[in-house]
Design a protein around this nucleic acid. Structure first.
Lengths: 208, 208
DNA sequence: GCATTTTTTGACCGATTGGACAAACGTTAG
DNA sequence: CTAACGTTTGTCCAATCGGTCAAAAAATGC
């Protein structure tokens, strides 16, 4: 069986595949799936198009590999939300981790945003599967905190959406954020300002 | 002078241009600028490609027209924020209007999101001009409310970003929201649930 | 060393892209 | 009715798209 056999890869294969995925992340996150081209990715990766297609059989194969990796990174911060911890500390930590991801991995955030914007044609199963399951689980945790009177009552799903939206905004809408804040305030400090604001908004908003 | 002359248009020209813009909104918002094709837009508008190019000289001309219209609609809700009104009522009204726009004009929201995601290559001047000026003005209004001790102190720019992010999320990430909420909770009621949650979050978050 | 396997490339393919053009077709004012 | 103008289309174009293929070049195992 070919398909089931574990893929043995040479040193060069590992290196070149990383190069390609790095270049593809740049292109897909900026232009979307249809907007990105194999020629463009190949050029950015410093190799010829047939050479790229020697390592990935198609454009979609690159995208699939990228999305699979992405989702693991993506779900990690929410997985850390701990039932047994202090609700405010847990939520505060989650917001901080998500904001750090927007700061350190903006291209991954935009890649994800592009896919969802286009109707999630290639990752719908993962959204309805893994992601929904995890959100259901953590929403129940938050609901537990509310029922125990430890934080104010609010819809836990929409709370999670709000955390996603506000944090990812600083990656997905980065050029707008920087343009509106101007040269001074739009500098490196903008993430610290955002962290302070979001901490206040969510923690105050959930006070009893 | 040709460029400066006011464009006189026949009845048919007005009708067909509207048809094209409607079809283009659908395509651009789903696939981005590069991902959308003239052939696709023409087919969706029910006409041949050369016929479409009789009404718009190029793909970019359609996009520019669409973006110009969009920005007016886009800035309207924030423009209504009234210095003289009650701060909580004003902010609450602004959130409600933005959420209604996400519900009623999701394609416009996604068109805007696509453009910003790609680095705003075609509307950067408007972002740095009109949009920044309006945000500066309204941020000053909010700052005034804070200085007067009418709402809690917080960064007004990041407050506006947070309102944008949370409301537009329900248009831009609609498929994800619906998938996570599931068939029952993801129905028509999701916008009412979102409205209730955001009202609580922001108003509680800004209480003194 | 040599034979085998892996890697790289130039040339090429059919399909699609954005757009040009002239000819044909409709509409309408006089 | 007819001339002028507005509208529509079929055909064509060069460029680019995703992808193939055979052959050359480089690395590797012995």
């Amino acid at each position: 069986m070919d398909a089931a056999s574990p893929k043995r890869r040479t040193r060069i294969q590992n290196e070149r595949r990383e190069l390609i995925l790095e270049a593809a992340l740049e292109m897909f996150s900026q232009h979307g799936f249809r907007g990105a081209t194999i020629d463009g990715i190949a050029e950015a990766a410093g190799m010829s198009k047939p050479n790229l297609l020697y390592y990935f059989r198609s454009k979609e194969a690159i995208h699939v590999t990228l999305m699979q990796r992405l989702l693991e990174t993506w779900l990690a911060p929410l997985k850390e939300l701990d039932d047994a911890g202090d609700p405010f500390a847990e939520l505060s930590g989650y917001i901080r981790r998500k904001l750090e991801m927007a700061r350190d991995y903006p291209r991954e955030s935009r890649l994800f945003a592009n896919e969802i914007l286009q109707g999630a044609p290639r990752i719908m199963p993962m959204i309805e599967g893994e992601l929904k399951a995890l959100v259901d689980e953590k929403a129940a945790v938050i609901k537990g905190w509310m029922a125990a009177g430890r934080i104010a009552r609010a819809d836990p799903y929409h709370l999670i959406f709000a955390i996603w939206a506000t944090t990812q905004h600083y990656a997905d809408f980065d050029v707008q954020v920087r343009a509106v804040l101007g040269p001074q305030r739009g500098g490196d400090g903008r993430f610290d300002d955002a962290a302070r604001f979001l901490e206040q908004l969510f923690l105050n908003g959930l006070k009893l």
